[in-house]
Amino acid sequence: MIELTHESLDPEKVTAKVRLDTNGAVVTFLGTTRDNFEGKRVLTLEYEAFDEMAVKKLEEVRQEMMAEFGLEQVAISHRIGTVNIGEISLVVAIGSPHRKEAFYACHKTVDRIKELVPIWKKEVYQDGSRWVACEDHEFPPADQPAAEQESAHRHAH
């Protein structure tokens, strides 16, 4: 029910895992990679994970959501490695007897993943890159050595 993979994600397959005859609702969320950040064109995204802990934390989120919302089944697949623009990086599928819980749980599952799971994404631009941080943990501009590296990188192009 939990999957970390370098392969492209198939939402149909992930959704099929939560289809039970006791369910009246299935909600599937797809996280897809966006082509811009503050007016800059994003060429590609690079995902990195602390695999062992990420799988453990995804399972914790899954168990937490099933208990909180009385769900029948939850499946989560996250892609790592290089993900091109417009591709799917995350699939969350929720199977529930009723739709209200399914919608709430899906929203909260994604929030918890973004808060808790040790996975990082880097946006790659024409002229550099940036590790994306949760908005409330945004790092200030890079310090001196990082700035030097970046300018060296720019000169190389």
Binding site: K56, I113, E115, L116, V117, P118, I119, A133, E138
Partner: peptide, 26 residues
């Protein structure tokens, strides 16, 4: 050991210690 650790946790030899920068999955 693959779990978030509070500041007062005592470390032992052989512990798997990792630094976790702000996460950004999804």
């Amino acid at each position: 050991n693959a779990d978030y650790a509070d500041e007062d946790i005592v470390l032992r030899p052989g512990d798997d210690v990792c630094l976790i920068p702000p996460v950004s999955g999804g």
